[in-house]
Design a protein around this nucleic acid. Structure first.
Lengths: 226, 226
DNA sequence: TGTGAAAGTTGACGGGCCGTCAACTTGAGC
DNA sequence: GCTCAAGTTGACGGCCCGTCAACTTTCACA
């Protein structure tokens, strides 16, 4: 029956570029997910994470309550999805920045520069901050933790290539992550956030430490190789 | 009327050491608070922070639901109280450790040593970790933030005394805090937590950075003094 | 010791949020 | 067209929420 095919073609001709192959089904599914995530972002920003309920998110949406649960199982899961989006956007940038580095200094500097630049540019989706009273919450989803693992793997590879002296990559990763998140917080609170300055500070701190760390290792061989 | 006084004395003689002056009222108030906090610790550990409800905590207690609300307004407040207890226990230790230091190295080393030692010794009350699925939560209460401020004030005082070169104390505080919490996490996950090793790593990293930071500042005077 | 008042406890209650599910609507394929 | 699977809807039973009137315990004073 050529008529049906023609209908299909006609539909595609009307909207030539976007959504060509995707059926209406898949389209609206993607759209609903987007609608929920956007509503959630607004509501979390308005009420704070703790005070927000699933119903608040649903109410900020034209959808019915049952539909919400077709997409997410809880507000926690929505929040994780939001953080995952950030992590998935940031991780390739970080990898790319690090891979082209030929020196330890560049490796560290590019990692911090990319991170702080992203954080400052996307203040709205800020990955970390949430205030309920004077309380401060940080959530690391699986995607975020995977980003940490990438940094660690890249560090170990760099150590293997002789870029870094052999040090405990797990400890160094943790330190860089801690510095990055805590400094990001400070930077964002300042009235004129300066991503470059934060990156410079973090880089200098870590590079100075890297110069000192291998010597320290020799002083205490009791622990043995990890 | 001496008889009333006698009754009071008799009561004290029966339990000679403890609770001498405190009336029954104040006693049971303190005890109820303790009972709730202990129950909460158990329940949070069992169910995780997110899944725990106020009713779960109440059920782990011989008290009625109304009584709970005489002491705390929500599970968030209970959790904050728990963290505050940790912060209030740790802060004097940290201050004492830092105050007697005559060198920058000692200042940094003692701060980290004290912190990691406390964290490893009190794994049960561990200040940071909470898992819901693969999610990782950290909460900084007002008391905890006050601890950060103390570190910053001590750092600035040390800079004033010439112990440290003049650097941005806010950035350095944030960095030390970030390193401390993130490393604490790594250390606690290891099967043989070595507080000393973590303290040594953190100290070396920061001291190496401190040697490098003042030079960096000269390179970029654009920002000006803070 | 007895008594009145204040402090503190209790658990039932109305209100709202939770996640589910049977009935319905929409899209895909023939 | 027609059928069936996929997806949506909102009402529903169950639970948690924070409150509060009734009750019990402690305290201060005579």
């Amino acid at each position: 029956m050529p008529l049906q095919e023609e209908l299909c073609v006609e539909a595609q001709l009307r909207r030539p570029m976007e959504q060509r192959v995707a059926g209406k089904r898949a389209q609206s599914k993607e759209q609903n997910r987007r609608v929920i995530l956007d509503a959630a972002r607004r509501v979390f920003a308005e009420l704070g994470y703790g005070a927000t309920t699933v119903r608040d998110i649903i109410r900020a949406t034209p959808l019915a309550s049952g539909t919400f649960y077709n997409y997410f199982r809880s507000k926690e899961e929505v929040f994780q999805a939001m953080r995952d989006e950030t992590a998935l956007a940031l991780r390739p940038l970080l990898r790319e920045a690090r891979l082209k580095c030929e020196t330890a200094e560049a490796f560290v500097a590019e990692t911090f520069r990319t991170f702080f630049a992203y954080v400052v540019e996307n203040r709205a989706n800020l990955p970390k901050v949430n205030r309920t009273d004077a309380v401060h919450v940080r959530v690391d989803t699986a995607e975020v933790l995977a980003g940490f693992e990438e940094l660690r793997a890249d560090l170990e590879a760099a150590i293997g290539r002789g870029l870094f002296a052999p040090i405990d990559a797990e400890y160094l990763t943790a330190s860089m992550v801690g510095i990055a998140f805590e400094l990001a917080d400070v930077v964002q609170r300042r009235e004129l956030p300066d991503a470059e300055a934060a990156a410079r500070f973090a880089t200098t701190l870590v590079m100075g430490g890297l110069a000192a760390l291998p010597k320290q290792k020799d002083q205490t061989p009791a622990t043995g190789p990890v």
